[in-house]
């Protein structure tokens, strides 16, 4: 059975306005790396909040690890299974020291103190922030804060991490740090990643891409399948990675290029 399943999910913030989500059907398997892309107001953040019970669907149901999000007794268990990292790195750190912040989740779960110690150390090591454990968060860079936020989720030992535009407020360096970290967690620790973004470059390494538009799913497919239809993506106001667009233009001019995703692949196929 899939780790996360959405069946016929509708959601609206209030009855007067158009629904934020319409008839979403999606299932995500354990260990997958799924990117969700879409323009502003396409419903991608709303979708994320449904996955760890920050919101409940107006119709349909969300099942996480066999548990329905409508049952209140499941909420803590679901939030432990599906961790969430938000966009603004400043607004999700709670404590005055990195170490204490990472411990926040496990503390809430009532885990005994020696075990918390172990988890905090492991989590900080996994995101490469172990050197900073005594720092106050406000002395860290954006990318570092975001990695601390990720460590705070890992310390709860989740099966899945949902990242809601984690790189939107970061500089290119911080963006790279965060992307490397989540790919590492997916490959080495087997954590399912649901990565919401509007940077198309960041979706290249995903197993599947979900394209959202106006509250519904437009397409689902591998990066190769999705990027093949460049014109459709552009119609939705999304930018495709430079290498993909380049290859697309060259193909139009009659140059034969296989399906590629990155600059390196493009270089290899041309030279």
């Amino acid at each position: 059975m899939a780790l996360i399943e959405l069946r016929g999910v509708d959601f609206s913030y209030n009855e007067m306005e158009a629904p934020a989500l319409k008839n979403i059907n999606l299932s995500i398997e354990a260990g997958e790396f799924v990117s969700i892309i879409g323009g502003n107001g396409s419903g991608k953040s709303t979708l994320a909040k449904l996955l760890n019970v920050l919101l409940l669907p107006s119709a349909g149901e969300v099942i996480v690890g066999g548990m329905n999000t409508f049952a209140e007794e499941n909420w803590l268990k679901i939030r432990q299974k599906v961790g969430m990292v938000f966009q603004n790195p400043d607004n999700q750190l709670v404590a005055t020291r990195v170490e204490d912040d990472v411990a926040f989740g496990p503390e809430n779960l009532g885990i005994p103190s020696p075990e918390i110690r172990k988890r905090v150390d492991q989590a900080l090591e996994a995101v490469g922030m172990d050197r900073f454990k005594d720092y106050p968060p406000h002395n860290l860079s954006g990318g570092q804060k975001q990695r601390v936020a990720i460590a705070g989720i890992i310390a709860m030992e989740p099966e899945c991490i949902v990242l809601d535009e984690p790189t939107a407020m970061l500089d290119p360096q911080g963006r790279r740090e965060v992307m490397d970290t989540i790919h590492y967690l997916n490959k080495e620790k087997g954590i399912t990643i649901i990565h919401i973004t509007h940077f198309m470059e960041e979706t290249v390494g995903a197993d599947r891409i979900v394209v959202m538009s106006q509250g519904s799913i437009d397409k689902i497919g591998s990066p190769l399948e999705i990027f093949r239809e460049i014109d459709d993506l552009k119609k939705l106001g999304l930018d495709v990675p430079l290498a993909v667009e380049m290859a697309h233009e060259l193909r139009k001019k009659g140059i034969k290029i296989p399906d590629i995703l990155s600059i390196n692949e493009l270089v290899d196929s041309l030279c």
Binding site: A103, P106, N108
Partner: peptide, 27 residues
């Protein structure tokens, strides 16, 4: 206020449910 709103969501999603049953890193 906006920060407070964000923080409340983040805390909720990290299983904060008041002081009941909470343990500490440093006892």
């Amino acid at each position: 206020f906006r920060r407070a709103d964000d923080l409340a969501l983040a805390m909720e999603s990290r299983c904060y449910h008041g002081g009941e049953g909470r343990t500490r890193l440093y006892e």
